[in-house]
Simulated assay, not measured.
Amino acid sequence: MKKQLFGLLLFLLPYISVAAEHGIQLEKANINLKDKASLQRGAILFSNYCMACHSLKYMRYNRIARDLGWTDDEIIKKMAYGQAKPVDDVMTRMLPGVAMEVLGTKVPDLSLMARLKGPDYIYTFLKGFEYDEKTKKWDNKVLHGTAMPNILEDVQRQAPKEKYDQDVRDITNFLDYVGEPIKLERQSLGWKVMLFLFIFFIITYLLKKEYWRDIKH
Rank of each mutant, 00 (worst) to 15 (best):
Q166N: 11
Q166T: 06
D165Q: 03
S111C: 04
T71Q: 01
T71S: 11
D89Q: 09
L112F: 06
D154A: 09
H54C: 00
Y131D: 12
K134D: 15
P119N: 11
V142F: 07
T105D: 12
L45W: 05
M148I: 02
L68E: 05
R66W: 00
Q40S: 10
M91S: 03
D72M: 02
T71R: 00
R93F: 10
D89E: 09
D109Q: 04
K106I: 05
I75K: 03
H144C: 04
I44H: 07
G42I: 07
K36F: 08
K137H: 11
L116S: 14
R115P: 03
M51A: 01
T135P: 05
N62S: 06
H54I: 03
R60F: 08
K161S: 08
Y81E: 14
I64R: 00
K78L: 11
I75D: 05
T135M: 12
D88G: 05
N62Q: 12
K141T: 13
L110P: 06
P119E: 15
Y81S: 14
R63N: 06
A43S: 08
L126S: 12
K127G: 12
L68Y: 01
A159H: 11
N62T: 04
D109S: 02
T92F: 01
P160S: 03
E133N: 12
D73I: 00
Y61R: 10
K85I: 02
Q83A: 14
D73E: 15
L116K: 15
R93E: 10
M59N: 10
L116W: 07
D165M: 04
G42M: 12
R60Y: 06
H54L: 02
T146Q: 10
K134Q: 12
E74S: 06
W70T: 08
R60K: 15
R41Y: 02
A65M: 09
I31P: 10
A52H: 09
I44Q: 14
N62E: 13
L39G: 02
E153S: 07
I44P: 06
L143V: 15
D165I: 00
A43H: 06
V155L: 15
E153A: 13
D132T: 05
K137S: 14
A37I: 10
K137G: 08
K77G: 00
K78V: 00
F129A: 07
A37Y: 02
A52S: 14
M51E: 08
L45V: 09
G128N: 12
M148T: 01
G82M: 09
V87Q: 15
Q158E: 14
L95W: 07
I64H: 03
P119C: 14
Y164T: 03
D132V: 02
L110M: 09
R41C: 00
Q166G: 00
A37M: 11
K78Y: 06
A43C: 10
I75T: 02
T92Y: 01
M51V: 01
T92I: 02
L68K: 00
K127A: 11
T71N: 01
Q166C: 00
D67L: 03
V155H: 12
Y61L: 06
P108S: 05
Y81F: 15
Y81M: 14
R157V: 03
